[in-house]
């Protein structure tokens, strides 16, 4: 039991399960999944589908945070990527063809990769503090996106693009497969090669890892490029969802939610050890919470209060001070058991 509690995914997993159970108790329909036209529908499926943009962004953010960095520009990158992709589709002769959409997506993601290189260059080569270096693009990016769309909200009609966010594959939402693929690829590359360990080394102690011969510059730059690329894909999914490029609303506040998801998943903002599985759980917690708030009939404008309460609750659950207090409380309860030698676990 105590080993289970010690596991780094215990508390995030517990929070997610608790949320799902609470929802199911409050409204049994929550867990219901129905089949219509060969595709699955229901609240859990919606959560898996709607998680896609935040999941991609949070995935990149996890790597950036592992190197002691932070990427505030992801929302702006989403806006740029969506603007680029939809402007290309809008301007083409055959907006409905798969080829056009593929090219548009590739160009959109390509531009995002370049923006990621820019962030990475500022942080790893010029050694500017990440929060400020990415603030530059966060501010300028939406301006660029507005320039690309001429200040308008570009709308398109294109079935292949619609498929990205709303289509189904094997009964499940296509967007779900996108994020699962992204998570799988990143996990494989980070955990089945030394890259993950090197990334953590850079985050734990940059100086020591430099002395050990780790090429921090390339690794840090790489994480920002990955973050940019994933944000670009998230931007495409967002645009596909509303079939429009909205430079102001695309990815608004997503950087904060993504960072929140990463932290909920147990990755410290101080860098170092990171958990991709934790981030996945973190994003699912946030999405489930959104769905809960919607169900409670709270105006979506007021939902931040709930998020504040949950953030406080979750960080308190994870806080060492609370763990200490809880342990002391348990110890005092079992004070009649005389020999508690320091260091031994108090079995519950």
């Amino acid at each position: 039991m105590s080993r289970l509690i010690k596991h780094h995914l215990f508390w995030p997993g517990f929070a997610l399960v608790a949320l799902v159970v609470l929802n199911t108790v409050a409204r049994p329909r929550f867990i219901e999944i129905s089949v219509q036209h060969g595709a699955l529908y229901g609240a859990p499926i919606d959560i898996l589908r709607n998680s896609a943009p935040m999941m991609l962004v949070a995935l990149g953010m996890t790597l950036v945070i592992a190197t002691r960095g932070i990427d505030l520009s992801v929302g702006a990158v989403m806006a740029v990527s969506g603007a680029v992709a939809l402007t290309i589709i809008d301007g083409s002769d055959s907006p409905g063809s798969v080829g056009t959409v593929l090219i548009a997506i590739l160009v959109g993601v390509g531009v995002s990769l370049i923006l990621g290189v820019w962030n990475g260059f500022l942080v790893s080569v010029l050694k500017i503090q990440p929060i400020i270096a990415t603030l530059v693009l966060m501010m300028a990016g939406r301006g660029v996106a507005l320039l690309i769309t001429d200040g308008f909200i570009t709308t398109v009609t294109s079935d292949p693009l619609k498929y990205v966010a709303s289509g189904h594959l094997l009964g499940l939402p296509f967007a779900f497969f996108i994020w699962v693929a992204a998570v799988a690829v990143v996990s494989l590359v980070e955990r089945r090669t030394a890259l993950g360990v090197l990334t953590e080394a850079v985050g734990i102690n940059p100086e020591a890892s430099r002395l050990a011969g780790v090429r921090a510059t390339g690794i840090i730059l790489g994480t920002y490029v990955v973050s940019g690329g994933l944000a670009g894909m998230a931007g495409v999914i967002y645009s596909s969802n509303i079939m429009a490029a909205d430079a102001n609303a695309a990815g608004e506040l997503i950087e904060l939610y993504a960072i929140l998801a990463v932290v909920l998943g147990g990755t410290s903002l101080a860098g170092g050890k990171f958990s991709i599985a934790g981030t996945v759980i973190g994003v699912l917690i946030i999405q489930t919470l959104e769905s809960t708030i919607l169900f409670l009939g709270v105006s979506s404008a007021q939902s931040p209060v709930f998020f504040a309460a949950v953030v406080v609750l979750v960080v308190l659950i994870q806080a060492p001070a609370v763990h200490r207090a809880a342990r002391q409380f348990v110890q005092r309860r079992s004070a009649n058991v005389p020999d508690i030698t320091p260091g031994t676990e108090v079995a519950r």
Binding site: L256, I259, P304, V311, V312, V315, A321, V322
Partner: peptide
């Protein structure tokens, strides 16, 4: 509670 300032003030923001 050893919460990172970024997250704690994010809670304040929300």
């Amino acid at each position: 509670f050893d919460v990172q300032p970024f997250i704690a003030s994010l809670a304040g923001l929300f």
